[in-house]
Design a protein around this nucleic acid. Structure first.
Length: 529
DNA sequence: TCTATCACTTG
DNA sequence: CCAAGTGATAG
């Protein structure tokens, strides 16, 4: 019960770190503590990335959900995650600028169903949608800024709308996913433009979840109600609840509130976690420093998640989600190495066998979303304005850019492109981007900041970024530009889209694309101007 | 399964 | 009051 999760803000648990361990933590506050964090280990090199450590906030709460089998609601309009993804980052160079971003990759290539109080595989996963990246609104910001307080990704929203114009992360219902945090050095010296872009990726296996349009396991519902302040209205114990329900419903007098009933009824553990449960907490977590290997680590159930398809969604090639907090660091080469490695298969997870999902190539195409100028948000141009969404857009100002042309080629691995001014580079594309399996595109928020990062997987996938405009930026740096990282692309460019065509007129996205992996590498500035 | 709507909470 | 986010619920 207790934990209210985010709100507290404090507790942290160390989870992963990038490379070495410098210090451990700064503070942990009290609260739960976790036990074992992972140890840090690491390795690596990259300039300055080595001492970076990341602690998942409220890990204990995440673990509670994970043990049951975390479910996250996805809606057309976008739904926040709960628990919220918040981390404490230490080991950053105070003066260096970094971009923090998240992405959520498929945990495996299966489709799940919840029956008989447990999750089971029903079939193969759908193609994976465009992987989008959510760039923390404060990005880029100095290490001092990021270290000052918890870095919250609570504004990140999940949607099941493949044509989502807001830059929310698009997921498929009844599929398993693994959130990942990436820290990219954006300093001028090295950063964006240079070739050495260093970055590291952290994966907390306890944050893996199955996306759903409505909760399947009542235990999860109960945990959400108990811990999410916004759901407080559903807490009730006892009488109140009944009364309340009765009043509300009028209809059936509930003898017992459904929720209550359900809860009791189901007690089964989730399959999901079933297995893992115990594991997860283990200290073992420490995973290896590099991720790639990750396979290793525990076998927690999460592994399911882990399975990184390489192609699929993982943006970074190497990053496979591992269970542990792994850190992948990538630096240049390592990334690749890593990537390849890991894969184990667990019963659950399977690596994506060959097929990966679709790979087909369809990419979303990006149309251009006119980026709203920084202040503006919506673009009338799109026509969206009217739409219900439009308002949102405005508010959020999130924009996505897709590059129509991908020049992925050009961009290679880690190139960053600057896009900021949105306009510049974008191209509008067609009416609407159909959904594509893996496109890559990024969105940026208002125009500022980054647009994308890249990623990629070996396959054609790319990801998109979304920046959230919304948030705050406290110290945000001048928004200047956005940068994108790209990785090299392996495959083809994006652009094609398969079907759909749509009618929608949504906005356009620009994509920058990126595909491939980001390795670390070299970014280039591209376009800027 | 998914969508839209509802009453409720937080801030 | 409002905006926004929640789970519950009916369709």
């Amino acid at each position: 019960m207790a934990n209210g999760g985010d709100q507290f803000g404090l507790a942290e648990r160390p989870d992963s770190d990038c490379m070495d361990s410098p210090k451990e933590t700064k503070q942990e506050k009290h609260s739960f503590t976790l036990n074992s964090p992972t140890s840090p280990q690491t390795a690596s090199n990259q300039q300055g990335m080595e001492g970076i450590k990341v602690f998942l906030h409220d890990r204990e709460l995440w673990t509670k959900f994970d043990e049951v089998g975390t479910e996250m609601i996805i809606t057309k309009a976008g739904r926040r995650m709960f628990p919220s993804y918040k981390v404490k980052v230490t080991g950053l160079n105070p003066k260096t600028k970094y971009i923090l971003l998240m992405d959520i990759v498929p945990g495996d290539d299966h489709r799940y169903k919840f029956a008989d109080n447990k999750w089971s595989i029903t079939g193969k996963a759908e193609p994976a949608m465009p992987g989008r990246l959510y760039v923390h609104p404060d990005s880029p910001a100095t290490g001092a800024h990021w270290s000052r307080q918890l870095v919250s990704f609570q504004k990140l929203k999940l949607t099941n709308n493949h044509l989502d114009p807001f830059g929310h992360i698009i997921l498929n219902s009844m599929h398993k996913y693994q959130p990942r945090l990436h820290i990219v050095k954006a300093d001028e010296n090295n950063g964006f433009g240079s070739k050495n872009t260093a970055f590291c990726t952290h994966v907390f296996s306890e944050t893996a979840f199955i996306a759903v349009t409505s909760y399947q396991n009542h235990k999860i519902t109960q945990l959400k109600i108990e811990n999410n302040p916004f759901a407080k209205g559903f807490r009730g114990s006892d009488d109140n609840e009944l009364h309340r329900m009765a009043k509300l419903q009028g209809k059936d007098y509930p003898v017992v509130p459904r929720s209550t009933v359900r809860q009791r009824v189901c007690s089964a553990g989730s399959p999901f976690s079933g297995e893992s449960r115990g594991l997860r907490a283990s200290p073992e977590d420490v995973g290896s420093p590099y991720s790639c290997e990750n396979g290793l680590n525990r076998s927690s159930p999460r592994e399911l998640l882990n399975a990184p398809p390489a192609h699929y969604t993982l943006p970074h090639p190497h990053l496979q989600p591992a269970q542990q907090p792994q850190v992948y660091h990538c630096t240049k080469r390592k990334a690749e190495e890593n990537c390849s490695s890991g894969n184990h298969q667990h019963p659950y997870k399977k690596p994506f066998p060959g097929g990966s999902p679709s790979e087909g190539q369809s990419y979303y195409h990006p149309s251009s979303y006119p980026a709203p100028p920084p202040g503006l948000s919506s673009n009338p141009a799109l026509g969206l304005t009217d739409s219900p969404y439009s308002s949102d857009m405005g508010q959020r100002q999130a924009c996505m850019f897709a590059s129509s042309e991908p020049r992925m080629d050009e961009l290679n691995c880690a190139s960053w492109s600057y896009t900021c001014p949105l306009s510049t580079a974008m191209t509008p594309m067609e009416p609407y981007p159909p959904y594509t399996p893996h496109p890559t595109y990024s969105s940026s928020p208002q125009g500022s900041r980054l647009s994308a990062i890249a990623h990629q997987s070996p396959s054609p996938l790319g990801e998109q970024l979304t920046h959230d405009p919304y948030q705050n930026q406290s110290s945000g740096p001048p928004p200047q530009s956005s940068q994108n990282i790209h990785s090299r692309q392996l495959s083809s460019p994006l652009r094609e889209y398969p079907r759909y065509t749509p009618n929608l007129s949504p906005p356009l996205y620009h994509t920058l694309e990126t595909h491939t992996h980001i390795r670390c590498g070299v970014p280039e500035w591209s376009a800027a101007s």
